[in-house]
Design a protein around this nucleic acid. Structure first.
Lengths: 120, 120
DNA sequence: CGGAATCCCATGGGATACTG
DNA sequence: CAGTATCCCATGGGATTCCG
């Protein structure tokens, strides 16, 4: 799709449009993370999806993937400089989201079952 | 899903997560728009989808819907104050997107010119 | 004009099992 | 640990038609 590729908003959407992408970026903005780190902090992402999104970000030059030839294997993901620049957007989203209160009845129907650690 | 509803980023995603939502907001940030205005400027949105997204934004208190009892009918959509506050995010996205250049080969595979059904 | 109603499909993503 | 490989499903969204 994309009717106006010249529009910055549309182009940004192609990058952070995925369901998990912004959350991955949020985590990586906190520093280098291993695959398992991300998997854990994100909640319920399938390894398939996580891999896909990371690979996409890597292909777009926003994330680096470093493999350490060890046993057991270790792979670290980190933001490139370009990736870091997405911080403005993520920060804006974090600010807005933390201030906004959905009108009663407008919340998204939540599955409500995440046994989470308060990592943030 | 949403594993951490307390995270602003996640909450924001519930609002602008839809495929067309940010583009609708981009347009509305320019001022009041009619249904047909949006439909036209957005490109190829089905009326169904456009209606759905607008209704959602309305339910979330971000957009107002004003119906004028005329013939032919006229319906105008505008951002509420809360909706306006999303401008920061959209602006950040516009800025980032207009600066970012996808590495060769990392662009999203564009349909290019197939006037076929299911143009995605 | 601004939808509502249908029908249908592509795609993203989930669950699970397995491996280098 | 960090993925692959499969299989499967939900759902968002597209196209079309009709209505007040």
């Amino acid at each position: 799709m994309v009717s106006r590729p010249e529009c910055g908003v549309e182009r940004t959407m192609q990058v952070i449009g995925g369901k998990w992408t912004t959350l991955i970026l949020r985590d990586l903005l906190g520093g280098t993370r291993r695959f398992s780190d991300l998997k854990r902090t994100l909640g319920r992402v399938s390894p398939k999806t996580l891999t896909e999104r990371l690979r996409q970000l890597e292909a777009q030059g926003l994330v680096t993937r470093t493999v350490y030839a060890e046993v057991p294997p270790r792979v670290e993901y980190a933001l490139t400089e370009q990736g870091q620049s997405l911080g403005e957007i993520i920060a804006a989203m974090a600010r807005w989201g933390s201030r906004w209160t959905p009108p009663a009845g407008a919340e998204v129907p939540e599955a409500a079952s995440a046994p989470l650690s308060g990592a943030r």
